[in-house]
Simulated scan of single mutants.
Amino acid sequence: MTTWRSRGHRGDSSENEIDLTNDLYRRKKLAYIKKNPVPIKVIDIDNKGMITKGYFEQKAYVDYSGIAQGISIAFDVKETELKSLPLSNIHVHQIEDLKEHAKQGGVSFILANFKMYNEYYLIPLEILAYYYEKSLQGGRKSIPYGDMDKKFQIKREFNGIINYLPTINTYLSSKQELKRQYIV
């Protein structure tokens, strides 16, 4: 049970920061981004109301989805204490969900917290897909911090807000260049 809990809650601190940011965006009418629930079937509850037995009814979608200024957004939040983001932290169905979202005209990405450097980066779907496909062909199994493009670094505000909306605008203006650069 402890192993499942620790694995399932690895990104909680980063997700808490993103939740605060999304709440601020909603209050300022900049975006409406919600945390997607994890579909769990509860089997047993103890006398304190704690779930003691349950299972995932289906694979969960990515962590967040919503809309910002008329643009559909879907993303997952990941954090790492390493000098790279292991691709094993990103499930295949999450990559597929992000791809499907993008095919429908949405903006899909990963928000990665490189805790060692105390920095967040937006990792565009094009870059994620590139590293994922290369890993399937025997390439590296992670996205190195050294390959992070500073233009996709997300500014952390003085109040702890992870202000990722401006970085989405940078991503949108770079999409054609990324498609050429990260051909899979």
Rank of each mutant, 00 (worst) to 15 (best):
S65G: 05
A68K: 00
A68W: 02
Q69K: 15
G70T: 08
G70H: 06
G70R: 03
A74T: 00
F75P: 07
D76I: 02
D76W: 07
K78P: 04
K78N: 07
K78C: 09
T80D: 03
E81I: 13
L82N: 14
L82Y: 13
K83E: 11
K83I: 09
K83L: 10
S84V: 00
P86F: 11
I90A: 03
I90R: 05
H91N: 12
H91K: 14
V92G: 03
V92S: 13
H93N: 14
I95C: 04
I95L: 06
I95D: 04
D97F: 07
D97K: 03
K99S: 13
E100I: 13
A102K: 06
A102Y: 00
A102P: 02
K103M: 06
Q104Y: 08
G106C: 02
G106D: 08
G106L: 03
F109I: 01
I110E: 08
A112S: 15
K115L: 11
M116T: 15
M116H: 15
Y120G: 01
L125W: 01
L125T: 00
E126T: 06
E126F: 02
E126I: 07
I127A: 04
L128S: 03
L128Y: 02
A129G: 02
Y130F: 14
Y132V: 04
K134V: 01
K134Y: 09
S135D: 10
S135K: 11
S135P: 09
L136G: 11
G139D: 12
K141Y: 09
K141H: 13
P144R: 07
P144W: 10
Y145K: 06
D147I: 05
D147R: 10
D147Q: 11
M148L: 01
M148G: 05
K150T: 15
K150L: 14
K151L: 10
K151V: 14
F152A: 06
F152L: 06
